[in-house]
Amino acid sequence: MPIEEMIKDIHFKSETRPDWCPSCGDFGVLSALIKALVQLQIPPHEAVTVSGIGCSSNLPGFIHTYGFHSLHGRSLPVATGIKLANPKLTVVATGGDGDGYGIGIGHLIHALRRGVKLTYIVMNNQIYGLTTGQVSPTSDLGHVTKTTPEGSDVFPVNPIRLAIAGGASFVARGFSGDPKGLVDLIAQAIKHPGFALVDVFSPCVTFNKVNTFDFFRSRVYRLEETGHLTGDFAQAMARAGEWGDKIPVGLFWKTDVIAPRRPLAPAQDPAQGLDASLWQNLIKEFQ
């Protein structure tokens, strides 16, 4: 390919500058996504980023691809509809922990089962950022927030375990503070033939003073450096349960077993109705 036709970072630069707080974890996710698309040479007009509502869900506005910034919690249904209607598109859903593991968790479980080829990046900051710091489904037990002044008294959702158990074929965790690792995970996820979840530690520097960049820097280790077998269900579930002084990032689980899909419907613009013979055929059942 002539160098002038290559897809570069600049092609994904949006007219709008991200309005995230300086140092927000989401910056790292945005740039990793762009680098992954560049690595895979996917042109902006063949990619669609789809989100719900939240700070993280503003991402489609900050990247130059087609985008659909939908309702709180609804990115996966919208993304699924887009992909089913035009399977040639690269569809990436993005959002936050509240969006995906709170209000939208029902959609996540069914997206895992359906296995429609989508990449789902969750910027998990363990807090509701946009609404100024309430407890989130991934907030740790005891986490003090505006709505849990005495500390959260419910167990957090473990998205990695949930996804593996729910039938996902690709489950990974990245860290916004590890750009190289994150680009690699996102690129692998986009190439994966089924539904791929990439949960990303993406610290909210404004409203979560516990799960900060430093918190993760001192704890995360890379699964691939431990000889982790991504096809071993028991190992994947065990690693997914680790939380505390050591927290794994990387690819937990990957399988080729993907829900079989019938051929996708073409979304051509119908210029006319049914052809005459098909119409005659259909009408017979009413005669």
Partner: peptide, 11 residues
């Protein structure tokens, strides 16, 4: 929401 996605994509 799926239908809206499909419609956005042209169907």
């Amino acid at each position: 929401n799926m239908a809206i996605g499909a419609s956005f994509a042209g169907a």
